[in-house]
Structures are given as C-alpha cells and as structure tokens.
Computed example of a mutant assay.
Amino acid sequence: MPEIAVTVTVIGFDGAPLSDAARSALASATLVVGGERHLDAIELPSGAARYVLGSVDGMFDAMASHANVCVIASGDPGFFGIVRQLRERGLDIKVLPAPSSVATAFAAVGLSWDDAIVVSAHGRELRPVANVCRAFPKVAVLTGPGAGARELGAELPDRTFVVAQRLGHLDQKIETLSSHAAAHSTFADPHVLLCLDESRLTSERGWIAGFGGVPGTWALGESEFAHRASMITKSEVRALALAKLGPRPGRLVWDIGAGSGSVGVECARFGAAVVAVERDAESCDRIRANAAAHGVAVEVMTADAAIALDRLPEPDAVFVGGGGVDVIAACAATPAAMVVVALAAIERVPDAISLLTKFGRDVDGVLLQSSRLSALPGDAHRFAAANPVFLLWGERP
C-alpha cells in the first residue's frame, strides 16, 4: 500500500488531443506513469517525474512517494486494463477513458461488434484464446508478445485477420490478410486482432453482446439431428456425457468416432471448440449439416481415428463414441482433463477401464438403462426399454 494518500487519475489515450479534464489532471501530477510510446506522445508537466511501465510492483513503489499521480493507458483502461490492478491495491482512482482499442479496430473496417467475443492473450495462455477463435465467427483479441496474429495464424486455417497496430498514432496501420499470411508476417506488439470466419458472419440482430451463454435446452432429441439408422448417441447418454465433458468457451473437445456428431454439436452449443473425427465420408457430411442446422462450428476430419489424432490440436476433453482399444489408448494418453467413453458391448468395458487407469486417470462409470414412454393402441402407454450403454470416464487427478 502507498505510504501517503495518493490521488490517481487514469487517462485513456487513443492518439486524439486530450480532454480538458485530462490536461487538468496532468497539470497537477507529480508523477506520470505509462508506456514509453504514450509518455513520448503526450506533453508532460515540466516538474513531474515519469515512470515507464514495466514491473507493476515497481510502479506501486514509485507511487508511494507521490500525492498526485496520472497513469496513461491505451483506449479504455477499464476494459482489460490497468484499472483492475489499481483497484486491487485499494487506491481511490478517477478514470477518464478514450474509446477502447477494440471499438476503434472494428470502426476502422466498418464492422459492428455487439456480436463479437472479446478475449485477451496479453500475459495469458494462448490456447484458450485460439479455441475461442475456432468456436466463434467474430472474435477480437488483445494480444501480447508471443501471443498475437502470427501465432494465432499458425493455429487457425481459413480465417480472415484484421490486424490493427499502433491505433490512434500517426503511424497507425490496419491490415486485412489471411490467417496463413499472418502466420508468416511480423507485427508490432501489442496489437488488436480481429479474427473473422466470414462463412459464418450473419446480419442477424441479437439482444445480448458477445457469447449468449449456455443453450436453453440440451441433450436434444434424436430427431434434432440427421443420422443413419438410429446410429446416434441417445439423449440420455448425451446428457451425462455433456456433464462430464464440461464444454464451455476456451475449451477444445474431440468427438472421436463421431457418427452423426450429436455430442460434438451439443458441445459447440455451449461455446466449446470442437473437432469431430469420423472415417465414413457420408457421416461426415451429416456432421457438417447438423452443425450448420444448429448454427455452430464443428471442424470435421474424415479419417480413421487411430491415425488422425496426432494431427489434431491438443484437447481439453475427449468423447469416444467409436473406435477400438487403440483409439481409447491414444485418447487416454492425451493431456485432456477428461476422457469419456461410450460402449455398447460389455466385453470392451474391462479393457477401457484398464487403459484409462494405465494413463493415470481416476476412472468411474455407469451402466445407463432407460425406458421411454411409448404409445399403445387405445390411448394406453408403456415404457419401452432402450439398449443399455456403458459410459466410462477417466479424469486426470
């Protein structure tokens, strides 16, 4: 905590002339904190000390001996910005924001952004950010060194990237390029990246910004999916599988031996990125059709799972709906926190348990037996038994 009472004014800067309130705060400041490019771009009071942002702890040490401090930050400093850290130290602060860098980037290319997901890769793990970009058609990314357009371009095929560098400055640069081109380019850090899947962008008007949250219903009936001869994970099984897989934004789920893709599609409805692997080309077409019908993205790979898994991005959770013991072993060996296996034959259960255990997973499971209400002649009903399914799951401790 500061040794003396500190008045802190946080000024958002987007390259435009400062407001009267911002200039007044600067005039009385004895210390001005900011990135070097911000401090060089603003006329500072002659008697004020300056601190170039680097170590956050160093910033607070510098503040300890000053009563009036101004902090200069990009855009809206309350949006993934320094306001949070200042508040966490118990400081009383005043914020004078500029338009956020995300709003400025979208405005630069004339796109609305109420339907965009906004994520930060600045000082954070890149993989969840990449998974959000896989799952959603319009994503804004606040980048950082080693976690920007170049790195995401290597992860994401078939995307359009808008890269906004040095927003609000005289050398501002806005580029629109393919994700492949971005993977082989160099950019100033930090920058704002807009990741667009143009095949899925719509003009539909929503009522809530960004991700709309979990779907209103899940474990949908089999009639909600195109499938072949009832070859589909039944809704009762799917309900428990979804509970164990825990799909949500930032996570990647594999749907292996996907069949109709019902599990993968439902995971995508929760905001997860999904890769479905299915060796039958006709079934792969059904998966794509089911994903499109439910308005979600599922990346489909037509391949034998036993030879395809090494080419997939690292999963957070895996559902195995088809494949032999070699497939179960390969999935169990992944870093995924959870692997869920659905089996119809009792003979396969011991091997599956053994493999999940072999790779250090805590194993549990149930035999799901359900009977569905079925109409009989004369306004009568009965409960018709469905085929039992063994559902096993292995969780990393």
Rank of each mutant, 00 (worst) to 15 (best):
A73D: 03
P377C: 11
A330V: 10
L373A: 11
A317S: 15
V339D: 06
N290W: 12
L96W: 05
S178G: 01
T104G: 00
V339E: 05
E278W: 09
G12E: 03
G34Y: 01
A305W: 08
A147K: 12
Q85D: 10
A219N: 11
A135V: 08
A380I: 06
S24W: 06
L18D: 05
G206W: 12
H122K: 09
L96H: 10
P145T: 09
W254V: 06
A268C: 04
L96A: 02
G216L: 15
S100R: 06
L177R: 02
M301I: 15
D304C: 04
I353S: 00
A140P: 06
L142W: 06
A41W: 10
A385M: 13
K173R: 15
A241R: 02
A386S: 13
L245V: 01
A336G: 01
D76Y: 10
D280E: 13
D76N: 14
D285Y: 03
H38V: 08
R127A: 15
L367T: 14
V214T: 14
A336H: 05
R159E: 01
R311K: 14
I11D: 04
G58C: 01
V349S: 09
E224N: 08
E278P: 05
A21V: 04
W113M: 05
G144L: 02
S354W: 10
R23A: 13
L376N: 07
A239T: 11
V214P: 12
V71Y: 14
V71K: 01
V340E: 03
I346K: 06
A329D: 15
L240Q: 13
A352M: 05
H180S: 15
V298G: 10
I174A: 01
G323C: 00
R248F: 02
R159I: 01
A272K: 07
K234R: 14
V118Y: 03
E175L: 15
S120N: 00
N290A: 07
F106V: 03
E204V: 11
S101E: 08
V132C: 14
T104I: 12
D351S: 07
W113H: 03
G212A: 11
